[in-house]
């Protein structure tokens, strides 16, 4: 087993910032393309955007590595997925139903993953992934491969009201797992505002109750997110136990692209939480001197080309064929040799 190097305090540098910004930009541009494809009728089902949450999500994902860490992203984590290393083609294949994609048309849109690489495939039931990540980490501990590994998952403010979130978070704390749970408090669960969702002042106040280390961050501020998430992940990796992060921000889209978010008030849109993290990040990159304006323009051109290519490729690929589909949900010979499988036909 490879011995992990000692993990020191997180330090934000230009390289980290550039990788983070690139993931944010890729996510924003990719999702804009997905939205267009949806509105043009090219994507069936739903399209769910992480617009406004890229800084937070990417700040987590950039600290995680496929094949080492475990990440259970939720519906607004395109930026985090990209930052962790998900290829654009994985996204376009899943949204367009290509059989070459990880879900082969059996599941779609943001319900995708590569579980064996540590990128879990979400189900729609909120809070349900917290314990699953915990279990993956517990398995690594049993096998003696946990050192240097971090598990992470993201939820919204709505998921904090579920029993699964509570049970999961409690297990994470009881087992003292190297895990980071991020709450993107984006003010609405679909259309339900936070005052109808919970009654505590700040969700992060719950960290103490669970026995977790808590962090709050301005989710619209890329540099702040990079610092806080970088530190939270580093602390978990160093063996300082599970970390809970609450970020305040605003979802800058509907719940899905079918939703016009008319329930979001003008006051909320104009508030600090309503700032566009992409605009803040752009200014921060320039101010830090980590990118020049022309470098950002070049980056946009490069990413745009990648997206166009990934859409074109996925569109050329086969979609699933119901006549050759095996229609079997069971991996074992038990299911395949019985009358059960004949009935499947």
């Amino acid at each position: 087993m490879e011995k992990p190097s000692p993990i020191s305090k997180f330090e934000l540098n230009a390289e980290h910032g550039r990788a983070l910004f690139r993931a944010m930009l890729t996510s924003r541009m990719l999702e804009a393309k997905l939205s267009s494809l949806y509105k043009a009728g090219k994507i069936v089902g739903g399209v769910y955007l992480g617009k406004g949450q890229e800084a937070l999500s990417a700040s987590l994902g950039i600290c995680l590595k496929q094949g080492r860490d475990v990440f259970a992203p939720l519906i607004r984590d395109q930026a985090g997925r990209t930052a962790m290393g998900e290829e654009i083609i994985e996204v376009t294949r899943t949204y367009l139903g290509s059989v070459e994609g990880p879900m082969r048309g059996r599941d779609g849109n943001i319900h995708r993953g590569r579980p064996k690489d540590g990128m879990l495939a979400m189900i729609s039931h909120l809070g349900a992934a917290v314990s699953v990540v915990a279990g993956a980490l517990m398995a690594k501990r049993l096998r003696g491969t946990l050192a240097g590994v971090v598990g992470a998952t993201c939820v919204g403010d709505g998921a904090t009201s579920t029993g699964a979130f509570h049970e999961g978070l409690n297990v994470v704390a009881v087992e003292k797992l190297p895990m980071v749970v991020v709450i993107a408090n984006n003010q609405y669960a679909y259309s339900t505002p936070t005052q109808s969702q919970f009654a505590c002042e700040n969700l992060i106040d719950r960290a103490l109750g669970y026995g977790l280390v808590g962090h709050s961050v301005d989710g619209t501020d890329m540099l702040a997110c990079a610092e806080v998430l970088g530190e939270a992940v580093a602390r978990a990796r160093r063996g300082e136990g599970p970390q809970l992060v609450e970020a305040k921000l605003l979802r800058l889209s509907g719940h899905g692209e079918h939703d016009d978010a008319s329930y979001v008030s003008e006051v909320m849109r104009e508030s600090h939480a309503g700032r566009d993290c992409m605009e803040v990040a752009r200014a921060q990159m320039l101010e830090k001197g980590w990118h020049s304006g022309s470098e950002i323009a070049d980056l946009e051109a490069e990413v745009s080309e990648q997206i166009v290519a990934a859409v074109a490729m996925a569109q050329k690929e086969n979609v699933p064929n119901p006549y050759t589909e095996d229609w079997c949900a069971i991996a074992s010979a038990i299911g395949r040799t019985s009358v059960e499988s004949e009935l499947c036909l």
């Binding site: 475990v70 579980p115 064996k116 879990l120 349900a128 992934a129 917290v130 314990s131 699953v132 990540v133 915990a134 279990g135 993956a136 980490l137 517990m138 398995a139 690594k140 049993l142 096998r143 029993g163 699964a164 049970e167 999961g168 409690n170 297990v171 009881v174």
Partner: peptide, 23 residues
């Protein structure tokens, strides 16, 4: 042989995560 908290949902979630890892 591990004791679990009274959290049936999390117990199965944990087991699913461990099973993904090959346990």
């Amino acid at each position: 042989v591990k004791d679990a908290p009274i959290s049936e949902d999390a117990m199965i979630g944990v087991a699913v995560g461990a099973a993904i890892e090959g346990m």
